[in-house]
Simulated scan of single mutants.
Amino acid sequence: MNADALLLVLAGAFLHALWNFFAKKASGGIPFIWLYGLVSLACAVPFGVLAWFQTPQTLGVSAWVAIAASAAVHVVYCVVLQKGYQQGDFSVVYPVARGTGPLVAVLGAVLVLGETPGLPGWSGIGAIMVGILLIAGVHRLLRTTEHRLRKGVMWGVLTGVSIAAYTVIDGWAVKTMGVSPLVYYALGLAVRTVLLAPVALRAPHVLRDQWRRHRRYILAVGVLSPLAYTLVLFAMTRAPLSFVAPVRELSMLLGTLFGASLLQEKGLVSRMAGTAFMLLGVVILARA
């Protein structure tokens, strides 16, 4: 992975952890998702239009299928993530989701896109996966009978599967078909907004209440979420998806810090060990 792609992924990881922390603080439902989606759409459309005029593209049937499929999976992702934040702890849902996602995404990249990471790439991916498992505290999750913890694991896994699905779809669109990341993302946001509108608009008073109580979180998530993901889309055009997907999970490092310092989470020793494995994996991937 070259330096430009690595920097793009690292910046995206930082912003991703930040907006997820804000989403956890709000713990809203579909009205919250739709409102921050409107903010994201307002931010993304000008850049998408500019990219369209700078590099005119003809979007074929395959491109529109990818846009529609990605939008639908993103809707599922947003809903199950918010469910997880409502019913589980941030330090459980977030790492489990981010750990499950790249594992399935790498397999999808190999099977669907035909990518071959090679021995150094697989070694780096393996080190990051071990780090993810340690940070998530899987040994503790498997032993516990705590209802909230098990709920967090369940929603985290479902979120991770949806992450893997849209990552492979988006990699196919921007890498294989050559669709502009900015155009692709703006169109995907528009489709998502349309898909969620019937549910979100059924109760205008709930939308007003969400805006009144969570305005700062709606604005923060609405701005940071598209920025973080657009950086990753650009990284996909410069490096194999099977490298990009695991490296972006460095956002878990910040998630661990947020959990320890702001949410008083435990498991420091295993998470420090996991951090060491993840950093080793990133070094290996950067030199691969």
Rank of each mutant, 00 (worst) to 15 (best):
D209S: 15
S62V: 13
S123G: 09
G222E: 09
G84P: 10
Y217S: 15
N20C: 05
V199W: 11
L219H: 11
L250F: 11
R192W: 01
V221Q: 06
M236H: 05
L6G: 03
L268Y: 08
F258Q: 01
Y166T: 02
V191E: 00
C43F: 15
D170V: 10
I128N: 04
V49E: 01
H205I: 12
A200V: 09
P95H: 12
A13V: 07
L227K: 04
A17I: 03
H205V: 14
R213F: 13
V183E: 00
A3I: 15
A68W: 06
P204T: 10
Y184V: 03
H16I: 04
P226D: 06
T275M: 14
Y94C: 10
A105G: 09
F90S: 05
L189H: 02
W19V: 05
P95M: 10
A63Q: 08
A273T: 12
V179G: 00
H214Q: 14
L219S: 11
V161S: 00
I67G: 03
T237L: 06
L207C: 08
V73K: 09
S180R: 02
R140Q: 13
L219Y: 14
I132S: 09
L280D: 05
W52C: 01
V112F: 12
A44R: 10
R248V: 03
Y166E: 02
